[in-house]
Amino acid sequence: MHPALIGQLTIDGLLVGGIYALSALGLNVIFGVMRIVNLAHGQFVIMAALICAALFDWGHVSPFAVLPVAFVGALIAGALVQRAFLRRLPEDLASAETTSLLLTFGVSYFMLGLGFAIFTGNFHSVPYLTGSWSIGPFSIAQARLIAFVTAAIIALLLAVVLRYTAVGRSIRATSQSLQGAMACGIDVENVRTVSFAIGSGLAAACGCLLSTIFSYNPQTGDDFTLSAFAVIALGGLGNYAGTLLGAAIVGLAISFTGYYVSAQAAQAAPFVLFILILLVRPVGLLGRRAA
């Protein structure tokens, strides 16, 4: 165990953590406002990645050029899913969680089937920016660094929107207290649609960024739903700063477990953390205690 190797594993872990953070932020925005668990989240991620792969095959279109378009497309798709399905679910609180789970589960299977029909079960990966930069003893993969920086910019933009815009304030108000928000005259239905749209958009942005990094087929979407869960469970449901911390921890866990144990163990690492945190500190590292 030498310092350069520890440094390299830390760099690899944090860079990949940035990608997980973006996907988990999207899931967390949706959960914070709507209190629903979106099981189709990973499918939005992978669908965007598959589209990037297809466009690259077709005309060498850069995934970074696809990103804004995919983001807007997913905003619209997310809003439609919310308006067409989730909004129609009964308001009755006892059953709302179960029915929303079942519904997003259904949406995820629909998207999985659609993915297989359009893109087949073959694995894809965009061969773009495949090289690396050497800095001292470290090699930093170009695609990963650029994806990380892009993810950071998007996360920063999200923070600005949440903090300084009217829409952002409504989103935060609604996630803090549904009754309070309604009492202040916030159009909660609209806020829900906007949050679901933003969450889906972030998922698609994440998909474009990971398209150059991972190998994936439609089935891989489930892994991304689950790893995003592990991240927000670690950081705390509804807590955005916690999400970033959770993503860094998951990224590092994958990187170090992969090196010191095995690639098989690395795949399980996020979920072992997930289970541990549920047992030890169910509100997450930075989570608020339930009222």
């Binding site: 990949v16 991972f214 190998s215 089935q219 891989t220 990187s255 095995s262 690639a263």
Partner: peptide
């Protein structure tokens, strides 16, 4: 490494 792996960074390292 496992079947259907999506990231090969650690094995390469």
């Amino acid at each position: 490494y496992p079947h259907n792996a999506s990231d090969y960074t650690s094995i390469a390292q």
